[in-house]
Amino acid sequence: MEKVIAARNLTKEYDGLLAVDHVSFEVNRGEVFGFLGPNGAGKTSTIRMLVGLTEPSEGSALVAGYDIRKEIVEVKRRVGVVTETSNLYDELTAGENLLFASQLYNVPRNERPTRIKELLERFHLTDRRDTKFGKLSRGLKRRVVIAAALVHRPEIIFMDEPTTGLDVVSARSLRKYIEELQKEGTTVFLTTHYIEEADQLADRIALIVKGNIVTVDTPERIKDKVKGTPIVEAILSREPNKLMIKNLGELGSVDLDERRISITTGNVMVALESLIHLAKQEGLEVQHIQTQRPSLEDAFVELTGISAESMMSEKSRGRR
């Protein structure tokens, strides 16, 4: 796999406070890489270093093959950035903002009208082309900002909390755009504090807390890392006998609550088969059966020690 971002000991210190603490990670070409963590975890500081908005205090990174310390202008040519705030020009229309972005990124003059038309259509902004940016709704502004970041067809797009503050419909359509970008082969570096967003969109996720990366892996593997793994849960017609519980105990840990039995196991299929077989042998009816896997939220809580409630409060703060 070709690496398009390779960070080595990237560190950022603000007035003695360590915002990013010697983080190292790699991002593969064409993947959606999620940077998941609560507010103040160091997500934005990491992005700002990678795109040249701030200098690292220590360490370095290669972005699109260029050193962020020595060749930042080359890096900037190859990346698009969607910042946390929609920071285009209120006084210019949506179309003029896209034109200005295409001029700044040196899109060939003859390609500009087609590219702008294409982006306006893609983000359903054609009828807002001549509306001043300042007059657009938050969701529409976000779309224009993403369109502006894509105007020069960047290899990598950095998105810093792109759905924060958006209503459900706008956030959902934005996630759809991110999926489309990935299908086209664009590498997406996405920071978010929405666990379900990272789970839905990211091929791999880095969990970052207090400037440190706790783990980097696929969402599935991160879920597998937490102890307990999958649970098979069944409701039987009556309480099972001790022998049955002992036999099921060989497959994993068993919890019994009257007629409700839960088996935490590494092998779901074997547990399911054994449970049904033993119940039949004992003359028990299986009234309900289901399997449960630990969610990414469970994994996040276990790996980072941050409670789901505190992430939820981050979430509601972000929505305001």
Partner: peptide
């Protein structure tokens, strides 16, 4: 203040 200067700083310019 609005962050628009940041947009210029993101462009491939010195």
């Amino acid at each position: 203040r609005t962050g628009a200067l940041e947009r210029l700083l993101l462009a491939p310019l010195s």
